[in-house]
């Protein structure tokens, strides 16, 4: 009886395990394997040892992709979370049309990032400069996506527009867990809105804040669709994310092996960051 039960459980996980191993773990191993070769993705190849790894560390294009990706991910993560908290607080207050407003703020999440990026590219290229020059605002009268120093801002704006929807919902779920009595106690103590937020609300949604930061950061570190749609990595290579670099050079540049090495390094970086974030999270929960 017991054995039969165990066997049933085993059969429940075996198909998924096979699928997962074949299409997740095995490709990862392949990637690691080829990172020690000079494989182009086709034709013949040789082992080259650690050469690819040494080259990645001297590759200005790769390094600038790391720089851009982290700058973008950190800024977008912070902005998304701040904006989402405030929208969530607003939606959680005693307001009219709550359902409709909540539904509207969630719309961006159901749209394809790539298509939204194309729409935003049009806004940055045509609509904003038009408005800018008719209002005489020099700063936005040219296309910011064409300026290597400003193009990343366009990507951040799009990313925040898109990601705030989901994060707002997560915060709303967090706010819903707070007992109304806590607020009543705070208002009896004479706390103003600002104090209530910092002293009461924020500590209670803090666990959500940490999780949201980790999840949003991880998503932004993978940024691909937004960049393909808005800038294609340009001008120059100023908005090239790591995912985009690995895709375009790994497949388009015939650098399969070299970019695999880059991907392995990226993997290690992500793991280190995740472990670090989890440590911080654990410490906070222990408090």
């Amino acid at each position: 009886m017991k054995a039969k039960k165990d066997r049933a459980f085993l059969w429940m996980v075996v198909p998924a395990f096979i699928l997962f191993f074949a299409f997740h773990t095995f490709p990862v191993l392949q990637g690691v394997f080829f990172s020690f070769t000079d494989y182009k993705g086709y034709g013949s190849w040789d082992f080259t040892g650690l050469k690819n790894y040494f080259n990645v560390f001297q590759d200005t294009r790769a390094l600038s992709a790391y720089g851009f990706t982290f700058q973008f991910a950190i800024i977008a993560t912070i902005l998304v979370n701040i904006i989402s908290i405030f929208i969530a607080l607003g939606l959680n207050a005693n307001i009219k049309f709550r359902k409709t407003l909540r539904a509207t703020y969630f719309i961006p999440y159901i749209l394809s990032v790539l298509i939204v990026s194309y729409i935003f590219r049009f806004i940055f290229t045509h609509v904003l400069p038009d408005i800018g020059s008719s209002l005489g605002i020099e700063a936005i009268s040219t296309n910011i996506l064409g300026n290597p120093d400003l193009a990343w801002i366009g990507i951040v704006i799009l990313a925040v527009w898109q990601a705030a929807a989901f994060n707002t919902l997560l915060y709303l779920a967090g706010l819903a867990t707070i007992d109304q009595q806590v607020y009543e106690a705070a208002s009896i103590d004479g706390a103003n809105a600002w104090q209530t937020f910092w002293k009461v609300t924020f500590p209670l949604v803090a666990p959500f804040f940490t999780i949201n930061m980790v999840v949003a950061m991880k998503n932004f570190l993978m940024a691909f669709d937004q960049i393909v749609g808005l800038t294609g990595g340009g001008p120059g290579t100023s908005t090239e994310s790591i995912s985009l670099l690995i895709y375009t050079s790994g497949l388009g540049g015939g650098q399969f092996a070299y970019q695999s090495a880059n991907a392995v390094i990226y993997f290690i970086v992500i793991v280190v960051i995740s472990v670090f974030q989890l440590r911080v999270l654990e410490r906070r929960e222990a408090k």
Binding site: R61, P235, G236, T237, S238, S249, G253, G254
Partner: peptide
Amino acid sequence: PNGLGQEGIVQEFYI
């Protein structure tokens, strides 16, 4: 050579 990325370099130079 392949993968030199000349387009990006020249574009950046013009900027």
